[in-house]
Amino acid sequence: MQKVIKSFGTNKVLDSLDLDIQKGEIVSLIGPSGSGKSTLLRCINLLEPIDDGEIWFGGIDISVPGYDPNPVRRRIGMVFQSYNLFPHMSVMENICLAPVRVLGRKANDTKAQALALLEQFGLADKAKSYPDQLSGGQQQRVAIVRALTIEPEVLLLDEITSALDPELVGEVLDAVRNLRNTGMTVVLATHEMSFAREISDTVCMLDGGVIIEKGSPESMFTNAANPRTRQFLSRVSSR
């Protein structure tokens, strides 16, 4: 991503932001609320059109105005803070909707694949349940499975544990740890510092719509150069 600018009205949320993400890399975005983490993820998935700059994905600038977003979104999965499962569909229907309707897969094949994934995420018995009948942690794991069944190359996780109580956070983070071994490229916005430290290859500190510091988890958490990063990290870790 190069010089990405995104404003909402007069509020410049992303201010000429640059970021490089390698295939298979796990990148954590940390920073205070309103620093632009979620907006950045939504821009990558073209849910928000950017005002200026470029977003390159696999050798193509996908941010060109008028570029068809649907093929891009098929290659990028996204999980939201508030799960956003479809309440009128069972877990299985939630998961199978996109593979069947978008990728044109056969319903039976998709179901088998979905069941395998549900099993892997400890949700095998929930296939017939409806979202409102599940706990927050279970819903979020279903949302991860749903994003995975389109077999994306990149997975965007937007503060996926912020709405969960501490006990449920663990099960969702375990689900993400599962992904690490698959070689999936993951970009996550998070407030779970210890998790960011454990799972990421790269940690980016956002403030005021730019990445003010970027580095390996070790260097960021033990030896940050930028005083703003140090201040932020000391505040969140002293909680």
């Binding site: 939504r42 998935n45 849910l47 977003p69 649907n70 093929p71 979104r73 098929r74 990028i76 999965g77 996204m78 939201f80 508030s82 956003n84 499962l85 479809f86 909707l97 996109a98 309707r101 978008v102 990728l103 949302a143 749903r146 994003a147 389109i150």
Partner: peptide
């Protein structure tokens, strides 16, 4: 709106989002 966002993020077109979600 978040329901639309979720549907679109899965690659559903506008019409499919309307119809199924």
């Amino acid at each position: 709106e978040s329901q639309r966002a979720a549907a679109r993020s899965l690659g559903l077109s506008n019409a499919q989002t309307m119809r199924h979600v």
